Amino acid sequence: MSQVLRVLLVDDQPIIRSGFAMMLSVEEDITVVGEAANGREAIDLAERERPDVIVMDVQMPLMDGIAATREVVARDLGRVIILTTFDADNYLFDALQAGASGFLLKNAEADQLVDALRAVGHGHALLAPEVTRRVIAQMASPGSAAAGGEGRHAGLLAQLTDRELDVLRLMGAGRSNAEIAADLVIGAATVKTHVSSIFAKLQVRDRVGAVIIAHEAGIAGR
């Protein structure tokens, strides 16, 4: 990743794109390298500009944000933050499965936008507490995409130690590293070590992937 974060803004509403671009224009470590009005444009621009982070709307013409995110992640064209509103819960789990690294509300303040871009740009997953609760509720609901996945990850989960399983359960419940440390009465550095080991053993790149597996396996928060 370059020292200056390269960002691509994708939304079919020009006013949303221009608003975000204006917010970011004052940041010395962030530059907007392009804007797209649909998923297909986003993929073409991502191929050309190689952004670090793509801020992606969901509902767009020609190709929606979920399909575009899936292709972007598969082709390693950048990490994706999904733009969302609280009336679009049905998209959250699909976006996570497509490989999104986090969510950002469309009415986000400038500091929230900048913090989100820096977090995801530096390799972290972004699951704000209010969004995490909705994602967890979605995955726990009857008939959700996570239903029936208890045995799907048995081989991967069998590699985890008992303590790593404890950490994974709490991650699946939306706990931060600091909260996990407090719950398990262990140090924050120890939690970080466990989390890194969990990512490696479950073959996921970030917290989002681990949370999905915890819920699909039915062990989150248990």
Rank of each mutant, 00 (worst) to 15 (best):
R17N: 04
F86K: 06
L77I: 14
D12I: 04
R17Q: 10
R222F: 03
G123I: 03
Q159N: 10
H194M: 10
S196F: 08
A128W: 10
V26K: 14
L5N: 08
R6D: 09
G34E: 04
L105E: 08
G102L: 09
G174N: 07
R152I: 03
G102Q: 11
T132V: 12
D166W: 05
M60Y: 13
S197H: 15
V58C: 02
Q112R: 14
M139D: 00
R70E: 15
G39M: 01
A214Q: 03
V7I: 05
S144W: 02
M139T: 04
G121H: 06
G187Q: 08
E109N: 06
D162W: 12
I82N: 06
T85G: 15
P51D: 00
I54V: 15
L184P: 10
A21R: 00
A188E: 12
G209F: 12
V211H: 09
I186T: 12
L160E: 02
D12Q: 13
S2R: 04
S2C: 06
A108R: 04
I219K: 14
V120T: 07
A46R: 02
G174W: 10
K192I: 03
L170C: 04
E216W: 04
E49T: 10
H124P: 13
L160A: 10
S18M: 03
R50E: 11
L96V: 07
V167F: 00
V135F: 02
V58M: 13
A220Q: 08
A140N: 11
T84V: 06
V204A: 09
V4D: 15
L24M: 14
D115H: 09
V191R: 12
L24V: 01
I212P: 10
P14V: 06
P142S: 00
R48C: 15
E41R: 01
L9S: 00
A210I: 04
A217N: 09
P129I: 01
S101K: 08
N38M: 05
A98Q: 03
A147Y: 09
V167R: 02
M63I: 08
L62I: 09
A95K: 03
D87G: 14
V72I: 15
E179K: 14
A100I: 03
Q138Y: 11
A137N: 00
P142A: 00
F103Y: 13
G151I: 07
L165F: 01
T31I: 04
R207V: 05
L165I: 13
I15A: 15
R205F: 03
R152Q: 11
I54H: 05
D183H: 06
V72Y: 10
E71D: 05
A210L: 08
L24F: 02
P14N: 03
P14L: 06
A128Q: 09
I136F: 01
L5R: 15
L202M: 05
L5T: 09
E130A: 12
Q138P: 01
Q112T: 14
P14Y: 08
M22T: 07
R40P: 05
G218R: 13
L62D: 14
S101N: 05
Q203F: 14
S144M: 01
A37Y: 07
L168G: 05
R50L: 12
L168D: 06
E49W: 07
D206K: 10
V80K: 13
I219Q: 11
K201A: 02
A67R: 11
G187C: 09
A200Q: 15
L9W: 00
